[in-house]
Design a protein around this nucleic acid. Sequence first.
DNA 1: TTGAAAGCGCTAACAT
DNA 2: ATGTTAGCGCTTTCAA
Lengths: 339, 339
Amino acid sequence: MNERNTERRMTADRLPTVVDVAREAGVSKTTVSRVLSRARPVTPESAAAVLSAAERVGYRVNPIAQSLRTRSTRSMGLIVPNLTNPFFGAVAQAAAASLTQQGWHLLMADLDDRPGREAEQAEWLRSYRVDAVLMIPVSLQAPDGLSRVTCPLVQIDRWVPVPDSVIVRTDDHEGVRLLVDHLRATGRHRLAFIGADPTSSSARLRLDSFREYAGMGRPVLLGDYSAQWGRRAAEVLLETVGDTDAVVCANDLIALGVIQVLIENGLRVPADLAVTGFDDIVFAELSHPALTTIRQPVAQLASAAVEAAMTLIRGEDLEHRDLVLPPELVVRGSAPGGS
Amino acid sequence: MNERNTERRMTADRLPTVVDVAREAGVSKTTVSRVLSRARPVTPESAAAVLSAAERVGYRVNPIAQSLRTRSTRSMGLIVPNLTNPFFGAVAQAAAASLTQQGWHLLMADLDDRPGREAEQAEWLRSYRVDAVLMIPVSLQAPDGLSRVTCPLVQIDRWVPVPDSVIVRTDDHEGVRLLVDHLRATGRHRLAFIGADPTSSSARLRLDSFREYAGMGRPVLLGDYSAQWGRRAAEVLLETVGDTDAVVCANDLIALGVIQVLIENGLRVPADLAVTGFDDIVFAELSHPALTTIRQPVAQLASAAVEAAMTLIRGEDLEHRDLVLPPELVVRGSAPGGS
DNA sequence: TTGAAAGCGCTAACAT
DNA sequence: ATGTTAGCGCTTTCAA
């Protein structure tokens, strides 16, 4: 058995090269290279000859050789906290789309939600000579190694304090304001916050913003960004629910966990308690009631990060080292509009 | 500005090479290579000298040069239908973990749920000289191009009919049997099926299995694997609900959409209608009621696929060209146990 | 056991 | 505008 795969590899060993094309076209391999990468002027005749020869022999450029020579792999690495969270999945999808569109590709590294592995993964990606690293860090801990990564680094959504860092993110501060204003406008004034320990920049920002807009006196429960935590926090909240008519959650996962426990305990959402999330993952729309949340502009986030990295790779200046994109309030059943 | 990034790239241009290590250690670069890749016997003295020299100059092998020479990139490509579906995200995460553990890496390609792009993406990955392609296809359409991909191809979960194909999957047939048996055991006998058009192998298999176990006469609604479709199908189902006491859905996304619409329409799940899913994505546990579903052994699926690919890459035979892993019934509130 | 030399496939100086 | 040559950093004959 397995003849096919063996055969495959044998043919793969003898893929046509620039030399084959050159011979077929009756020119030098340099000319072939120049035509194919349109790096330098060439007579229409040579160009045509090369193109048709390449077609005839079935030539495909070898990006490995190209990379060795040019010192560019035309690839970026993306470090995400956890691909099981659809928000990060969506960012990965969008980044891959942006890159593919320009003939680049994406290497993935998943941190599995373990903090402190950012530098290790970045160095690992760098050892594969990615031209840039895009990163959504897990926590605020900035491992020293990160400043040793010898290529542009662009952080998305959250950031760790590295020197001269470049970051593309959603305006979390404004997002929280939109949520609080919406809740107030619909008659909810006794807010509580269920968030994540401020070990990541976004957790810190969302917490601080909540305190700023809702007041320092409001109850705050801090854990992590998981639905699991949302469940536990909701159980705690249930004991003090008398003083609360709305729960602002730091992300959708938490909110979904909260809603589940509230309903299990016979409370009505939103009648007894409104709940809001953050991110607008696919499942925000799928819970019952559906989740009122802040939509992060995922596609723009990813393409802006890719563009920033491309700019840095070219050695050019960046207009914004901290690019902040606007959030969007999405009103659904868990904290409805009107009143 | 941007001095740091410029500086970074300058230093990057002069990373130490085997020659630097050789000079430092007082041996030839051949010996360095042999020590570092432990390809051939070497005296302990040379070995020690090389190792410490490598350490001193901060040597890191250049995988690009290595790849050009050895014709192996130590990487695999993974093609997924849509990273926004946490099931595929989980597979990607697990595959990345398996590979990383062996010092390999993963290139991602996302089909964005558009059928027929499998071959194009595979060829694209192959042009980056990945040593194998892992694929979860969108549909059954087998574009010709796929047989032109000159490296081992391992399909996961679903498959298209390519010659000599290798596939690693969960036993969907058994999964459906577990669900139907469970529903029957809890007194549900009037089952309906909401599935996807049999344009993918898993859709076909789950549909056929349902008909086999639940009987040809039971109502069947076919669309795609999305929650959106689940919603629409549930609306249709509502008109004929009198004859139905349980809905078997072909995946969790569909089931979540179904549950949402049922509840919106005042039905009780599971009291009026039990609902089951398939996959056991993270959100199966997060809906209310939580979803009774079939857990796919994602980690095993991914690592088995990686191992199969490694075997083919080595040119060895495969024990199973169709590896079928056992599913697991996970009973939760949407179709509870007991009675 | 070790080294010298060739070469993977490509692009970039440097000629012409 | 084109060709010649060198060389990216590594592994692998081939000889010693």
